[in-house]
Write a protein that binds this DNA or RNA. Structure first.
Lengths: 197, 197
DNA sequence: GTCTATAATGGGATAGAC
DNA sequence: GTCTATCCCATTATAGAC
């Protein structure tokens, strides 16, 4: 039959949406089956259980988000512009980060769940550090600034922005955190593109 | 009413510890009763239910953490030193913030749970903004920098540091985020004589 | 491969004796 | 106020027909 893998894909797709909306602990096999339209046995035919299915879904989400980061960070030739662009991108603050929100859950202790999430954070920190390194090499960064540490702080600002927005039920909290970090970063970067010898 | 509070206090104390360790969704009334040593009916005698008890526990945690913030931010006369001191305080990164970690849970939608958490974040942002405002008034902050936005970004760095540390199972992720933010902040503040924090 | 039926466990709350 | 006993329901997973 041509429709091979149809049910499996439907299960993964439903899981991706439910994990984004409710997190891991609050997403039950029943919810997944209802949303995907699959029958009871199908989940356990295609996957070992809930965590195995969630791992498959998170693997896809992680890949999507790494691609999105690459697209944004490669869009501008100027590294400082690219980093500021990534930092200030609009984000659905009240929904939370599809991967980062799982860090608070006990399920992060399961290696199969943690792996795709950690892969994303390592990737985004590495890519930011690389572009900040370009800026540093061009003498555009204040002396003594470590690109890896600055990258970590910027990723943290975004993840913390989600936390603040959800905790105070206010999407503007994310925008304030982004704006503050952008101002700090601008203050320690030379603003002009080009040769600074 | 005399002799009041022994069992009630034990229930709240047990709940504070369990919320810090496991979050809200994974803390069950059974766990609370086992840890507190109270019998089954006591929880529902003293509280309306799980969320009511959790609210009481979070109210206490929020007050404790606001006091801790005040102590740190008032310790140094110099506002920039005080803010850097707060930012770089050692934190138990893998355990997560006792309040911030709940922001990712569905329970944050319940007003009684969200209120003490939001109160903490509003407090710490307000106190940081006040001290950064002192620095700005003294001409110690780069022009055009908004104290409220910088405060939001610093709180976000800490919350995001917890997320990164847990997601990558690496406490050093928190320290890198803190160090990066401290470097950014120092770069936009006029140097403090005799102090290298 | 997919379905219906159902088991086993634990979460959250209540009843009522003492 | 505190205890024991119990209820109802959701979660996660399995069994076995088709």
């Amino acid at each position: 039959m041509y429709a091979m893998g149809q049910t499996r894909e439907a299960l993964i797709e439903a899981t991706k949406h439910l994990l984004a909306e409710d997190g891991y602990g609050s997403t039950s096999p029943r919810d997944i089956l209802a949303r995907s339209g699959a029958g009871q046995g199908s989940l356990y035919h295609h996957f070992r259980g809930k965590s195995d299915l969630a791992a498959a879904a998170l693997h896809e989400v992680s890949a999507e988000m790494r691609t999105a980061v690459d697209d944004r960070l490669d869009a501008a030739a100027d590294p400082v512009v690219a980093v500021l662009d990534w930092l200030q991108a609009p984000r659905d603050a009240l929904r939370g980060c599809r991967l980062g929100r799982l860090a608070a859950e006990p399920a992060i202790g399961e290696a199969v769940i943690a792996a795709p999430i950690a892969a994303y954070f390592h990737h985004v920190q590495g890519r930011l550090a690389a572009r900040l390194g370009e800026a540093a090499a061009a003498g555009r960064l204040t002396d003594g600034m470590d690109p890896g540490e600055v990258a970590a702080s910027l990723v943290a600002v975004v993840q913390g922005g989600y936390v603040l927005a959800r905790a105070t039920d206010d999407p503007a909290a994310m925008r304030r955190a982004q704006a503050g970090a952008a101002a700090l970063l601008r203050a320690c970067c030379r603003p002009v593109e080009g040769d600074n010898r």
